[in-house]
Simulated scan of single mutants.
Amino acid sequence: MDTIDILSKEFFTQDFAEEQPYSELLGKYKDIARNYARMESAVAVLSDMRTNMSYIYYGSFSRMLEIDKCGDEGKVSSIWEKEIFKLIHPDDLAGKHLQELCFFHFVKHQPKSKRTDYYLISKLRMKNGKNNYISALHRMFYVSAPSNDTLWLALCLYSPLLFDIPAKCLIINSANGQMTEIGKQDSTRILSVREKQVLSLIDKGLTSKKIAETLSISINTVSRHRQEILGKLQVKNSIEACRVAKDLKLI
């Protein structure tokens, strides 16, 4: 299972309550995406994880990419904007998906009231019509569902890289200006030290009894850690937990 498959599974297995004002709020966020495209000359992609749809707004940057759609609005039956992905350098695209997975877990573990404070920023190489790669800035925001902790929308912005940033990829806290480099964020916010120990032993093929003996804890405690790990990583079994944890570089 690659990173994009993990992301898809985690997005689409979230609990979306049906009786919510999704349509009304979606219109509001579509206007925000459209205005980002206009005011920042960006290509803005608003992805709806509930319906597996994307809405694309083409600012002036689309001319640099030689996509002849400046000022247009597009609709795609997928949350993955493949038209844009094919312009991104393959190495950067793989990194982008892993960064988004890390950011997804980071945001999921923030209080709902604080989630809008954070966004992701990264450098990409994108291909123009002459098959030359140019430097681009990618930003990403997650939007929670109206009434619960589910992450509902993702807004991605692609624009020219007007100034360098101090790392390949950063999580920005817009409320206080704090910057955290992806890969150096506090992973213990996702799994505790003990949970990582347990998961590492699971990955080595040890049974719960053996893990209990190795760590000098009870089997009941091992079982509790297993359930906590599955919940925190939003997966259904230990095999998936090991895969996700490796992608997040937790083990």
Score class of each variant (00 low, 15 high):
133 Y>P: 05
133 Y>E: 06
133 Y>T: 06
133 Y>D: 06
134 I>G: 00
134 I>E: 00
135 S>C: 05
135 S>P: 11
135 S>L: 13
136 A>S: 14
136 A>D: 03
136 A>T: 10
136 A>C: 08
137 L>Y: 04
137 L>T: 12
137 L>I: 09
138 H>C: 10
138 H>P: 01
138 H>K: 07
139 R>D: 09
139 R>N: 11
140 M>G: 15
140 M>I: 12
140 M>Y: 01
140 M>R: 10
140 M>S: 15
141 F>P: 00
141 F>D: 12
141 F>S: 13
141 F>C: 10
142 Y>V: 02
142 Y>L: 11
142 Y>I: 02
142 Y>R: 05
142 Y>G: 05
142 Y>P: 06
143 V>P: 00
144 S>P: 11
144 S>R: 10
144 S>Q: 11
144 S>G: 12
144 S>C: 13
146 P>G: 11
146 P>D: 12
146 P>H: 07
147 S>V: 10
147 S>E: 13
148 N>A: 08
148 N>M: 08
148 N>T: 07
149 D>N: 15
149 D>W: 04
150 T>K: 05
150 T>G: 11
151 L>C: 05
151 L>P: 03
151 L>M: 13
152 W>F: 03
152 W>E: 05
152 W>Q: 04
153 L>M: 05
153 L>T: 03
153 L>P: 02
153 L>I: 03
154 A>G: 12
154 A>M: 14
154 A>L: 11
154 A>Y: 03
155 L>M: 13
155 L>D: 07
155 L>E: 07
155 L>H: 06
155 L>C: 09
155 L>S: 06
155 L>F: 06
156 C>W: 00
156 C>Y: 01
156 C>R: 07
156 C>E: 15
157 L>T: 07
157 L>W: 03
157 L>P: 05
158 Y>K: 04
158 Y>W: 03
158 Y>C: 02
158 Y>A: 03
159 S>W: 00
159 S>Q: 13
160 P>F: 08
160 P>D: 09
160 P>T: 08
161 L>I: 01
161 L>A: 11
161 L>E: 11
161 L>C: 09
162 L>Q: 14
162 L>E: 15
163 F>N: 14
163 F>M: 13
163 F>D: 13
164 D>C: 04
164 D>W: 00
164 D>P: 01
164 D>F: 00
165 I>D: 08
165 I>Q: 13
165 I>Y: 02
165 I>G: 10
165 I>A: 10
165 I>P: 08
166 P>G: 08
167 A>Q: 11
168 K>V: 09
168 K>Q: 15
168 K>R: 14
169 C>M: 12
169 C>F: 05
169 C>L: 04
170 L>F: 12
170 L>H: 11
171 I>V: 14
171 I>F: 14
